[in-house]
Design a protein around this nucleic acid. Structure first.
Length: 560
RNA sequence: UGGGGUAUCGCCAAGCGGUAAGGCAACGGGUUUUGAUCUCGUCAUGCGGAGGUUCGAAUCCUCCUACCCCAGCCA
């Protein structure tokens, strides 16, 4: 069991950030404000989900607010498509951001004024070094950098140059605005970092208004300050930037003083979560788009049938610490199953059909049986049409009647088996085709065994699922397995693509399901009993052409 | 290498000087018309290593080791 309190919400473990917040509150902090600041240059994945849960969850926990803010400072890589998808993802997870969606680009005018402010203070200058030259001047870990020859330009010249950069007078790459900090700092981020670079690209929010765009460093902390963010939570790789983050907060007339805190990124084994790699999987067609059910994207998980609650429970179970560990996929799967077991309606689906004829049940007759939607919870009942001709799964029949009852809970000639939510039957005969392949099993039902135990001496070997061959419906089932078959696909020598699991996807078109399943709304999750959890496909499922995606199998503890 | 960060059970972790929580996984037992669920139980004389301080150390000090991040006009 995971940690649940009385209201069945996952108890969030305390973490160092919450400890800090509680200390701050004791010092008089009134309202906690956080933000989730994605760059709209790709789709969100499970790692972002952790950040979303942390930021929104923290605000929720302390009755504060959390903003959704797009860090859109690099128009070349960004797109409205991603803005839309990200908003959809955050909502799907069940979070509401405070007020309107924010954009870094909302504050571009302010940033420009602040750049001028730094120039006037003698703390910023326009540098004409080429990228290559700048790299040389920057020095290296063990060797200090050299001051740029443009470092001592006059305030007026800097102001003029910056204005002309803004007007588009200069080529991309020809000039940048840099902060004047310390070219000998052991922290490379402090060696006169770039504030503005020339980018003559159209921006998805501001169009062609700007020819210069602020760098992440010159934007992020100020965005936080403008929005009154109190705790700016980011991942560990930004720890090196904190001194710079603080430098801007100290040297600019910002309206508030946010603090940055870093936590360790989420890694999960058997998958990848780098935007570059995910994009490559999509672009090269190794998966069918960003929402392919095998993708660790939020869109992919959604289409796979993971519920938002399961994703949140998983994220909340994760510790917020500075360690960079890798969580077992099994831990995620636990929360997916836990949620689906609790909430998914049960149904039957035969995926490898074998005709089963009930010889003592009249032809043409349909008996409507009633079965619970859920074995433990009160979720009502469903009706199952029982007929003379049924389908059972081939894997549930074996011709060898000497098989151990304990190890093989399957139908064998001369023995009994329970049909789930229906009769106990006894296999009597096997019909084969010319090639010797079994094409039908004939069996007789034991009267009075629906909802009742059979008479003494007719102990069923096990329980199996079934669907009426005449009343059931044909459906397509898509089987998904992990995309990679090694624990750390991105570690090691070779290309991570070499670790792709060639059997991660298969489609079965000849499945038989309970007739009611045709009416399932897209994105409804079910447990196909004894098979696993499946979801009606978000886009392609319809009553005319039912399509179910395998979300995850049942926990399977029996050993051969 | 200079800077930043991290090391506690197979995995994720709590622990904040008083004698190793919890979850996942695993392994046993019970219940069961899903080999599911549920349920009961087992699972670190040990906290990267070596010293030291202390009545007492995973927690404090010293040195060492390993791993991750930065050195984009990316975020």
């Amino acid at each position: 069991m995971s940690n649940h309190d009385a209201s069945n919400a996952v108890i969030q473990p305390t973490n160092f950030i919450h400890q800090i917040i509680e200390q701050d509150q004791q010092q008089g902090l009134e309202k906690v404000v956080t933000r989730f600041p994605p760059e709209p240059n790709g789709y969100l994945h499970i790692g972002h989900a952790k950040s979303i849960c942390l930021n929104f969850g923290t605000a929720e926990k302390y009755n504060g607010e959390c903003n959704l803010r797009f860090d859109d400072t690099n128009p070349g890589k960004e797109d409205q498509e991603f803005v839309d998808a990200i908003m959809d993802d955050v909502r799907w997870l069940g979070f509401n951001w405070a007020g309107e969606v924010r954009y870094a680009s909302n504050y571009f005018d302010t940033f420009y004024a602040w750049a001028q402010h730094l120039i006037r203070e003698g703390k910023a200058y326009v540098c004409d070094l080429s990228p290559e030259e700048a790299s040389e001047y920057r020095g290296w870990a063990t060797e200090p950098g050299k001051n740029s020859p443009f470092r001592e330009r006059s305030v007026d010249e800097n102001l003029d140059l910056l204005e002309r950069m803004k007007q588009g007078e200069f080529d991309e790459g020809s000039r940048v605005l840099r902060a004047k900090i310390d070219m000998t700092s052991p922290n490379m981020n402090l060696r006169d970092p770039i504030l503005y670079r020339i980018r003559k690209a159209s921006h998805h929010q501001t169009g062609d208004k700007w020819c210069i765009y602020p760098s992440y460093d010159f934007a992020h902390g100020q965005e936080d300050a403008i929005e009154g963010v109190t705790h700016s939570i980011c991942t560990m790789e930004f720890a090196d930037h904190r001194p710079l983050y603080e430098w801007f907060i100290e040297n600019l007339p910002v309206p508030s003083k946010p603090r940055q805190y870093e936590f360790g990124r989420l890694n999960i084994n058997y998958t990848v979560t780098s935007k570059r790699k995910l994009k490559q999987l999509v672009d090269e067609g190794h998966v069918n788009g960003w929402d392919d059910p095998r993708m660790p994207t939020i869109q992919g998980m959604r289409r796979r049938g993971y519920s938002p609650q399961a994703v949140r429970n998983f994220c909340d179970s994760l510790a917020v610490a500075k360690t960079d560990g890798t969580v077992d996929m099994a831990q995620f799967e636990f929360f997916i199953r836990e949620d689906l077991n609790e909430n998914a309606a049960r149904a039957m689906c035969v995926m490898n059909p074998l005709k089963l004829v009930i010889t003592n049940f009249p032809e043409g007759e349909v008996e409507m049986l009633s079965a619970p939607v859920h074995p433990q919870k009160e979720m009502g009942t469903r009706t199952l049409p029982f007929t003379r001709e049924l389908y059972m799964d081939r894997g549930d029949f074996n011709e060898d009647s000497t098989l151990s009852r304990k190890k093989f809970r399957v139908l064998v000639p001369g023995d009994y088996m329970r049909l789930r939510s229906a009769y106990v039957i006894k296999a009597e005969d096997v019909i084969k085709d010319a090639d010797g392949e079994i094409i039908e099993v004939h069996a007789s039902l034991v009267p009075g065994t629906v909802g009742e135990n059979p008479p003494e001496g007719m102990k069923p070997r096990g329980v199996m699922h079934w669907v009426s061959a005449t009343e059931g419906k044909q459906a397509t089932v898509r089987i998904y397995d992990r995309l990679f078959n090694v624990e750390s696909p991105d570690k090691g020598e070779g290309d991570f693509l070499a670790n792709i699991n060639p059997d991660s996807f298969s489609e079965i078109t000849n499945c038989w399901v309970e007739p009611d399943l045709l009416n399932a709304a897209p994105e409804t999750g079910f447990q196909f009993e004894r098979e696993g959890y499946f979801v009606a496909d978000r886009y392609e499922h319809s009553p005319e052409h039912p399509v179910f995606n395998k979300t995850i199998g049942l926990r399977d503890t029996w050993k051969k």
